[in-house]
């Protein structure tokens, strides 16, 4: 699956990274606790979250993630967008809730176990 496919499935807005939507994705993790992402995530390529602050972007960058999906229609600040651009991370925003977002992605084949590489 590509980030572009994910954008379509979630009917999401692209906040940045339009030019890198063709990257492929195998796995995702979802959390509002960045502490848990840092402690438990293993090579997942997408972070699904309802949390809104620059640490979300930095956490994803530290974990080598490619894309962040913000749920519940939340839109990242300019500061967050600039940071994500500098780290080549795609930011998507969907109107779906966390549970629905995860359900859609899981049903369409994304796994919880990390991408290997």
């Amino acid at each position: 699956m590509t980030i572009h496919d994910i954008k379509e499935l979630l009917d999401a807005r692209v906040c940045c990274g339009e030019e890198i939507l063709n990257r492929s994705i195998l796995s995702a993790c979802a959390s509002d606790m960045m502490s848990d992402v840092l402690a438990f995530a293993k090579n997942q390529a997408i972070l699904v979250t309802g949390l809104m602050n620059p640490q979300v972007i930095r956490t994803a960058e530290m974990m080598d993630m490619k894309c962040i999906v913000f749920v519940r229609s939340k839109m990242p600040s300019d500061e967050m967008v600039n940071l994500a651009e500098s780290c080549s991370i795609v930011l998507l925003s969907t109107d779906m809730l966390m549970f629905e977002t995860c359900g859609v992605l899981f049903t369409k084949g994304l796994i919880g176990k990390g991408d290997t590489q």
Binding site: D32, M33, M34, S35, D36, L38, A39, L51, N53, Q55, V56, T59
Partner: peptide, 10 residues
């Protein structure tokens, strides 16, 4: 915690 940290895993 509301900012996403403080789970005692650091």
């Amino acid at each position: 915690r509301a900012l996403g940290f403080g789970a005692g895993m650091g």
